[in-house]
Design a protein around this nucleic acid. Structure first.
Length: 548
RNA sequence: GGCCCGUUGGUCAAGCGGUCAAGACGGUGGCCUCUCACGCCGCAAUCGGGAGUUCGACCCUCCCACGGGUCACCA
């Protein structure tokens, strides 16, 4: 068989050669050991939480090694493509601060190894496919779906492995005449790899995460170019990652099954294989059992969910990092203020089995992250969130920034900062009472407080309040009030003999807190009063007393 | 079903032949505190099962069970 003749017959329009491509995409000028990594999602919908997991691992690994991190879009399947998904990915990654050195951008490409959208690389793929045909390592297959189905049935009956291979590969050894005839009849065809593998022999691959992997060699004549001239994942992966000089290919573990395909493909193409890094799948608990986080059923699969719900972006980032490398938590405790980029991310610490995405733990991480922020930072974040999700609150925040920042500054900055909220969506409930427009007037008194007593204490307090008090003076006044009303001003004395008092100064403080904030849980009452100002404090206490 | 991969408390996990089997989240008891929150001190809770190898096994080997992945002109 004259393979050159066949190649020309199939691809007369392809004038470029693999050599041209090598010249066009030369090796990168990077230091020894620098990794070139990437994330290459398929634009089939929204951005999955797993994509962030992958992106962070790739970005950290590449940059820690002094290498490059790029973004490619795997849009070879036009049937599944969702309009605007690629752009959504780009903006979403941007929101999470994932920075690419090169790759697809909103209006095109940025980098020397493009195009970065596979749909624009058809000629490149065909160049290599043509070469494979010339080498006798690929051939056209004109089988219809029905024929493929018939082969499968036959294999089932014979108890053979399913697939298109060996003696079942109808067109593998077809004559040039048969091929020309089929071509003339205009039959659609795909290009298949002519596998030289032997399933009774083994291939070994060392995975950077999973370790030693071993399988039977590939024997499938899998498709490398679909009938529309476009490649399926496998072929695009080989060509792109080679030409873009990817050193480490990280992808989900659903790809390990086809690793033998890739091994044979890289060999046939004469490419050096990248280091493979197969990651575990993120799971969630459903009822009693673990399962993959699914796009259909789980809103938390979508990264946009976290933004909408008000999760701080750094909270998600830090939580995902602990999922990636569980020792990140310990590192963070030891380095509370260091940027995340100082952390020495490593493949070795990556889990081999699927981790459960624990939203409760995420929340805890978020509270920590928020507690480390300055009031100003919290303000900016809350305001940005409210702008899109809570216009009423947004207006109040915008109207008086200094006021909001002062409120958010209560209990912040010390060694033991308050951790009142983890989500931006919780801030309104936390500080809403500072705004008259949001202060409902509902009072959540603890059940142990007597109403008449509370009313009496509140009324008395109105007379002794002085907005110029220092904190200790302010509290001394409460103690004096406690003493005169039969409440213990000294907590130790109270604990020793509670029956000797109507209550303690703690109860009095609580009465004031609830009268002023409506809630049992609030920042320091003195600070609250200070910010609220005399008029509103007395107003609120008077009405509270009147209500009782 | 074939082929792969995995299995340490409810969850995330450290450990890699000799440990009272880290730590974190969650749960729970207490302390501190003007209330919460924070913080601190405790408690409960784990090596899937069975054979080996070994003086000794969570760590090594084999078998089983369970979980997951994959078997497309989708990625």
């Amino acid at each position: 068989m004259d393979y050159n003749y066949l190649a020309e017959l199939l691809y007369p329009h392809i004038k470029t050669t693999p050599e041209d491509m090598e010249k066009k995409y030369p090796a990168r000028d990077l230091p020894e050991g620098a990794r070139v990594m990437r994330i290459a999602p398929s634009p089939t919908g929204y951005l999955h939480i797993g994509a962030l997991y992958q992106a962070m691992a790739n970005e950290r690994s590449a940059h820690l090694s002094g290498g490059k991190f790029y973004f490619r879009i795997e849009d070879t399947d036009s049937k599944r493509e969702v309009q605007g998904a690629a752009e959504l990915f780009i903006t979403m990654f941007g929101k999470y601060g994932i920075k690419f050195d090169e790759g697809a951008v909103i209006d095109g490409d940025d980098g020397n190894y493009g195009p970065y959208r596979q749909s624009q690389r058809t000629e490149i793929y065909q160049t290599f496919a043509k070469k494979l045909v010339q080498d006798g390592r690929a051939y056209p297959c004109f089988c219809t779906d029905e024929e493929i189905e018939a082969i499968r049935k036959q294999q089932e009956e014979a108890g053979d492995n399913p697939g298109y291979y060996g003696k079942y590969a109808k067109w593998r050894d077809a004559s040039i005449e048969d091929i020309e005839t089929a071509l003339k009849e205009g039959k659609p065809y795909v290009i298949r790899l002519k596998s030289m593998g032997d399933a009774s022999k083994r291939v070994k691959v060392t995975d950077a995460i999973k370790g030693e992997l071993e399988f039977p060699q590939n024997e499938q004549d899998f498709v490398i170019l679909k009938s529309n001239g476009t490649p399926p994942y496998h072929f695009a992966h080989a060509v792109d990652d080679h030409l873009m000089h990817t050193t480490h290919v990280m992808r989900g573990e659903e790809w390990v099954a086809t690793l033998p395909w890739h091994v044979e493909l890289f060999d046939a193409l004469g490419f050096k294989r990248p280091v493979y890094c197969h990651t575990a799948t993120l799971m969630k608990l459903d009822g009693g059992s673990k399962r993959k986080i699914s796009k259909r059923k789980d809103p938390e699969a979508d990264l946009a969910f976290y933004i909408k719900e008000g999760y701080p972006k750094d909270g998600l980032l830090e939580y995902v990092m602990t999922l990636l490398n569980s020792n990140f938590e310990d590192w963070r405790r030891a380095n509370p203020t260091a940027p995340m980029t100082d952390f020495q991310f490593s493949f070795k610490k990556m889990s081999v089995s699927g981790a459960l995405f624990d939203i409760q733990k995420l929340y805890d991480v978020c509270k920590d992250v928020v507690s480390r922020m300055t009031a100003e930072e919290v303000y900016e974040n809350v305001t940005a969130w409210a702008k899109d999700n809570d216009p009423e609150f947004y207006e109040l925040l915008e109207a008086d920034k200094a006021y909001a920042v002062e409120i958010l500054g209560i209990g912040r900055g010390g060694k033991k900062p308050r951790k009142d909220f983890g989500l931006w969506s919780e801030v309104k409930a936390y500080m809403g009472f500072f705004y008259d427009a949001l202060f409902t007037g509902n009072k959540d008194y603890p059940e142990n407080l007597d109403k008449a007593e509370t009313k009496k204490i509140l009324e008395k307090y109105v007379d002794i309040f002085d907005e110029n008090d220092e904190q200790n003076v302010w509290f001394d006044r409460l103690k004096a009030l406690a003493d005169s009303e039969g409440y213990a001003s000294d907590m130790k004395a109270y604990k020793q003999d509670p029956a000797a008092f109507k209550g303690s100064v703690a109860d009095i403080a609580m009465m004031l807190r609830v009268a002023v904030t409506g809630k049992q849980v609030s920042p320091d009452t003195y600070c609250v009063m200070k910010i609220l100002g005399k008029e509103r404090v007395l107003g609120r206490i008077s009405t509270a007393a009147a209500e009782l």
